[in-house]
């Protein structure tokens, strides 16, 4: 028999991705901490306005004299929560549509892919503003925008993966056995495209964070006094010259969140989708 050289899948993530995972978990921990006011009450006025970082307000104070530390903590939580909720919705919808389009092909595939391409052709922020205009600014608009921005790419990739899986012999054998569509899609196709969904889900999370940031920055997303990273950056922007710490705190956290998620995504991709080099049979 010809040797089928299989690239060994390493069970563990590389150090960089682990660092990303660690950083992300830290941010989640920080966000959870804000629930018990670990850094202080985000809405309490604790001192003079626009103070640079110092004892009592380790990230400085804002234009109302609120400590930035608890506000950034709350902001991370809001941003992560909205983005993950949106990504879960995206993952569910993309999995459904992508697998159906990839396995069934034909008119259904054409229909789903044309809609996806239509969404794909809108610039993300234009799409987000459109949603906010229809749904009204707020958390719902933020979630809906993230879903609409992330769904096209994910659906396309899930579909591509499903097309490849649909041609494999175990799927054909199941169809010949008389297995119905739910069984074939649920037992055979979905588990074998799950890696793609997980990897794309992480990337979608980082896109989601930046869409939330952008939308709230423009004032269409999360509404103050609730803090999100986008809201904080918008408020900080007004006083950028006088009090740069207002924008540095949430800005650094936003960059950290997106970077760590992307690095983690790269690691997951290498783990779940190794380039398999197989000799021709």
């Amino acid at each position: 028999m010809n040797r089928t050289a299989r690239v060994k899948r390493s069970r563990r993530l590389d150090p960089l991705s682990l660092a990303g995972l660690g950083c992300l978990l830290l941010l989640v921990l920080v966000a959870l901490g804000s629930l018990v006011h670990a850094g202080g009450d985000p809405d309490a006025i604790v001192g003079p306005r626009l103070r640079p970082p110092g004892p009592g307000w380790w990230l400085g104070t804002d234009n109302l004299g609120r400590s930035m530390l608890p506000r950034v903590m709350e902001g991370v939580g809001t941003t992560l929560l909205l983005s993950s909720a949106a990504v879960l919705v995206t993952a569910a919808l993309s999995a459904g549509f992508g697998i159906l389009a990839g396995y069934r092909g034909g008119y259904l595939n054409e229909l789903i892919m044309r809609v996806v391409e239509l969404l794909y052709s809108f610039p993300a922020i234009v799409l987000a503003i459109l949603v906010a205009a229809v749904a009204g600014p707020g958390q719902l608009a933020a979630v809906a925008s993230i879903v609409l921005v992330t769904i096209p790419l994910m659906t396309r990739l899930v579909r591509a993966a499903a097309v490849a899986v649909a041609e494999r012999d175990y799927v054909t054998a199941a169809a010949i056995s008389g297995a119905g569509l739910p069984r074939i899609l649920g037992r055979h196709v979905l588990p074998n495209v799950a890696g793609t969904i997980a990897v794309q889900g992480t990337y979608a999370l980082s896109v989601g964070i930046s869409v939330e940031g952008g939308l709230s920055f423009l004032g269409f997303g999360v509404q103050p006094p609730q803090a999100s990273l986008g809201v904080l950056i918008r408020q900080g922007g007004t006083y950028m010259m006088a009090a740069p710490w207002l924008i540095i705190g949430p800005g650094v956290v936003l960059v950290l969140a997106i970077l760590s998620i992307n690095v983690l995504g790269d690691g997951l991709r290498d783990r779940f989708e190794p380039r398999e080099t197989r000799s021709l049979i």
């Binding site: 028999m1 494999r168 012999d169 175990y170 054998a173 199941a174 056995s177 297995a179 037992r187 588990p191």
Partner: peptide
């Protein structure tokens, strides 16, 4: 039933052998 070409793709990598063998009965 059918036995198809590629040993590499003939079985669902996410299912245990027992599940694969029993699937036609489950259907």
């Amino acid at each position: 039933q059918a036995v198809l070409q590629h040993p590499h793709w003939s079985l669902n990598p996410r299912m245990r052998i027992g599940q694969s063998v029993g699937e036609p009965l489950a259907v």
